[in-house]
Amino acid sequence: MRGKLLVGVALTVTVGAGCTPSVDRLDGDAGPAGSAAGSASPSVPGAPTTASSGSVTPATVSTSPAAPVSGTSGPATQASEIRRTDWPNAVIRKLGFCGESDDSVAFRNGSNGFDVPCRILPGGAQPVYGEFIVEEPANAPSTEDALVLVELGNPNAARRQALVPVQLSDNGRGRYAWPVIGGDQPGSGGVKVMTFLSYRLVGQNVEATVRRLDGGTETRRWRKADGSGNWERY
């Protein structure tokens, strides 16, 4: 295990009237959840995500469930391997959150296609990138990682969301999940669902604005609890 933790990328978002300070790079932000699954690149459905860098103009996230996300960033840079992922059609290993018995979850057009589906980047959400997962072995070249939103369950039924850290495999071609940051269990017979309105990386930690089961919003923060990649709120 690498002793020195890698520093990730912070994503600035504005929710309602509040805003956070500018940071070095804007990579993506989470769209409102709970609607039909969307592509990581909303203007071209199914297209791989591209990289962006430069100074930041804060993104705006509406609290309306059907509203789009807006944001701007500086000139594009060369995309890393993880940024070339076609997320709506990705194959992700070790994603136990989706409830599959197989080692891998294969998404097609944003869903694994089961009767109780697992959807990736629902509602037009976008991945966030940064070096926030410790590389193994310690002398391995550092690579960017991704944080993506998934949702398990049918619309208008019991659903639960989670933020999934995704890392490249040793050969640089596969993608596998680390322990997820799960949203609250659904309440009132599954009708009420906690949703992630926005999320970002702050160094190696994760910060998100969520809508609680009671309809209120709050900011939550998580950090790694151990060397296995489990998370704890703080």
Rank of each mutant, 00 (worst) to 15 (best):
G3R: 13
G8C: 05
A10D: 01
T12E: 01
G16P: 01
A17C: 06
G18Q: 11
G18M: 06
T20I: 04
P21H: 07
V23Q: 10
D27G: 11
G28A: 07
G28W: 13
A33R: 15
A33E: 12
G34Q: 14
S35G: 13
A37V: 09
G38N: 08
S39D: 04
A40H: 09
S41Q: 09
G46S: 00
A47Y: 09
A51L: 02
S55H: 12
V56C: 00
P58L: 10
P58G: 11
P65G: 04
V69H: 10
S73M: 14
Q78I: 07
I82R: 09
R83H: 05
T85K: 13
P88E: 04
F97N: 15
F97Q: 07
G99D: 06
N109M: 07
N112K: 08
F114I: 04
C118P: 10
C118N: 05
P122V: 05
G124D: 01
A125H: 08
V134L: 10
V134M: 12
E136A: 07
P137Y: 06
V148S: 08
L149F: 06
V150R: 00
L152H: 13
N154E: 01
P155C: 01
P155D: 00
N156M: 00
R160F: 00
Q167S: 10
S169N: 06
N171S: 07
G172Q: 06
R173H: 02
W178M: 11
P179K: 11
G182C: 15
G182N: 11
G183S: 14
Q185H: 14
P186E: 04
G189R: 13
G189V: 08
G190L: 13
V191M: 14
Y199R: 15
L201H: 11
V202M: 15
E207W: 14
E207G: 11
A208G: 06
A208Y: 14
V210H: 08
L213S: 02
L213T: 07
G216R: 12
R223H: 08
K224V: 05
D226E: 12
D226G: 13
G229K: 12
Y234E: 04
